[in-house]
Amino acid sequence: MGAHVSVPMYRRTLAARVGLEGRRCDRCSAVSFPPRGACGQCRGRSLTPVRLSGVGTLQAWTYITAAGAPPEFAAQVRRDGGYHVGLVALQEGPRVAGQLVDVSDPEIGQPVRAVVRRLYEEEGVVRYGFKFAPHMGEQLPAEGV
């Protein structure tokens, strides 16, 4: 299987990748994102979908050069050069890795917000998903339920 994310596999994750849908534990209320089969805190298996704000804080970052990029990202590197990837703690609790856009000098602790971008194209199918942009404090959509 390798690292190939098939089209059906990509489709199954669209609610999370584009709609930022996580799961809230029915037992301990902890939010998991990306969604998982059991609560990351208490391992409870009864979970309810929850929409996340996409707002969070940068906890770590790296800059991936052409030498470090998986080949799926070669087209992006050819056009835009290397890219930053960050580990973001979302305000609802969970942490997730995502590329950072429109940053030249990321700082651990800086607020970020999720945006929808192209991840890459394979089999002629564009894979869309969240990345993170600096959060300037503009008005944000209210947190859903």
């Binding site: 994310v5 990306p34 790296t62 991936i64 470090g68 990029a69 890219y83 990837v85 890795a97 991840l119």
Partner: peptide
């Protein structure tokens, strides 16, 4: 984690 870390453009070096 191929579904999320990898789709963020990370290999193990990252």
């Amino acid at each position: 984690d191929t579904e999320y870390e990898r789709l963020a453009g990370l290999t193990f070096a990252g």
